[in-house]
Design a protein around this nucleic acid. Structure first.
Lengths: 163, 163
DNA sequence: TATAGATATTACATAAATGAATTAAATTAC
DNA sequence: GTAATTTAATTCATTTATGTAATATCTATA
């Protein structure tokens, strides 16, 4: 898992067998997959002591970072990239743990608004130092300029995937 | 899902509540997650007509791109990033479909060597044009220079995650 | 205001992934 | 040469994620 070289060699061998296979796009897609997995596993390890996994943490941080502090289930699904059925399961778990609370929206009674409880706020306060250390560590090989440049390129890539 | 702006706004609001939260690393991690999901879903949609999902396709391409054409189960796990238990499940499915075949390794009888069958080779030959088109389309907003630069930065990021 | 159509949420069934434990074969140490 | 250790692959139980369909509520328009 530590070296990406074998992956590149396989892509090169694939191109010998099938020349139109586009090297750079294939390398980039594999890198994204590889990085995602490492970041995801790393985050899970950091969050486990707090009784959370990465998707649960993401939902809590969506609420923490939202002015007003409340989002509907579908807004959470949209912003977190999870399927709505999965949001129900995850928010059930977070409600059971007492970290978030559901309230019916007054204007649109189809909606269920979700917000952090004091216990949820407290948990985030407790884990943020570890999370910040994790994020800084994960990006430690990139200086400020690298990070800005990478952000720009990833957004450029993103623009080709959504349109 | 199409805009990344709300995510950035949430990160900014998080930083108002908790200033040490590192903006760039958080943005980059979210971008990686976002891009991975889009690429993954996109690939699944392209592969479905061929009766494959993305993990299955990855395993087949590992074998296709390996000189000699055979890998052991643990080598497949290592190179694909899947857990070994998952490799067993996935390769069972691919064997059932007749796309790969298991043979015992002569030197080490604990090992199970996996290789493409003629049917597996044929399927890859059939789907590669679509996959190449997909890859080129996914990276269409990045010119050759962008792609090289992005590859370099992602590898630099990777070096901080594995060590 | 009645009703057709759209949206939000949830429930249920199914699929995919993971972790822990098991079996079998090879390697090492004695 | 035998016992202990390591490694490879699988099985089983559990967790996590997805797709489909059902239910309830809202919106628009005739």
């Amino acid at each position: 898992m530590n070296s990406f070289l074998p992956t590149e060699q396989r892509i090169d061998h694939t191109r010998e067998r099938y020349p139109p296979f586009p090297r750079e796009p294939a390398v980039l897609v594999r890198l994204i997959k590889h990085l995602h997995k490492l970041v995801h596993d790393d985050a899970n390890a950091t969050l486990r002591p707090y009784g959370l996994n990465h998707p649960e943490y993401n939902l809590l941080m969506m609420l923490y970072g939202t002015p007003g502090g409340a989002l509907s289930a579908s807004e959470l699904a949209e912003s977190s990239g999870e399927k709505s059925a999965n949001i129900t399961r995850l928010t059930n778990g977070l409600c059971d743990k007492g970290l978030i609370a559901r309230t019916a929206d007054e204007d649109d009674r189809r909606k269920v608004m979700l917000a952090l409880t004091p216990a949820g706020e407290a948990l985030i306060g407790a884990l943020l130092p570890d999370v910040c250390a994790l994020l800084d560590r994960q990006m430690r090989t990139l200086d400020a300029g690298d990070q800005r440049q990478l952000e720009g390129l990833l957004k450029k890539m993103l623009s080709g995937l959504t349109a």
